[in-house]
Design a protein around this nucleic acid. Structure first.
Length: 217
DNA sequence: CCGCCGATCCTCT
DNA sequence: GAGGATCGGCGGG
């Protein structure tokens, strides 16, 4: 169990959590915890923004044209990471969702830095995790993590529930950021008003605040 | 606040 | 050969 400035970390999220509709998973991941282990130890962040992709009708999804070398992981079982390079510069990290071969995933777009905790009163500066490229850079997530399982106790990268329902923020929904096709699909979920939600690049996200309810509600 | 731009390189057509 | 599931910097209103 790991503690961070945002509270203790709850139970690890298992395969069943991810083997659901990507929009439901994307909604539920807002407010939950992602942890990354490396040689220096374990770092935890609280997710504040996600985006759902996939389904047969989603022209914005990398999987839309069928399995390719890049997106093949999306066609595999849920609970594995899909990491790809964007604009030749940044990495983006997704978790595969849904039933196998449904080729759906959730992009982790932004988070708040929680740990590591130190007894030193002088805390290290908190890196910005605002935006998918900033998040992967700060956490050291790269293409080497593509395809890796994130549901095993031995996994380098894991997801956890928040410690309590009180941690669950109000969630807003909007169209998606930075895509040209199917951009209006309301599949971007974010903690309402949170300072670490990504800024809108490549044009503002459209359809802001069109829903504030759980996708299945 | 808003929009444009370059960096940089891989993927798919 | 075109176009990115991005970002930081710059300039204008």
């Amino acid at each position: 169990m790991v503690d961070g400035a945002g509270g203790s970390i709850g139970q690890r999220l298992g395969r069943d959590f991810f083997a659901r509709d990507p929009d439901v998973v994307a909604y539920d991941l807002v407010g939950s915890i992602m942890s990354v282990r490396d040689a220096d130890g374990l770092v935890a962040v609280r997710i504040v923004e996600t985006e759902a992709y996939g389904g047969a009708d989603d022209a914005a999804s990398h999987a839309f044209a069928g399995p390719t070398d890049r997106c093949r992981v999306m066609f595999g079982p849920a609970g594995h990471l899909y990491v790809y390079r964007v604009y030749g510069v940044h990495w983006c990290v997704n978790v595969v969702t849904g039933i196998e071969a449904s080729a759906s995933a959730v992009l982790v777009r932004a988070a708040t830095y929680l740990g590591p905790q130190t007894s030193n009163p002088v805390q290290p500066p908190r890196p910005s995790l605002r935006g998918p490229g900033n998040l992967t850079r700060a956490l050291g997530v790269t293409g080497a993590d593509n395809g890796s399982d994130c549901c095993s106790t031995t996994s380098r990268i894991l997801f956890h529930a928040g410690s309590s329902d009180a941690d669950r923020p109000e969630v807003s929904v909007s169209g998606r950021v930075g895509v040209s096709r199917n951009a209006l699909r309301p599949s971007r979920y974010y903690a309402t008003g949170h300072r670490d939600v990504s800024r809108f690049v490549a044009g503002r996200a459209r359809g802001e605040g069109i829903a504030k309810t759980h996708p299945t509600a």
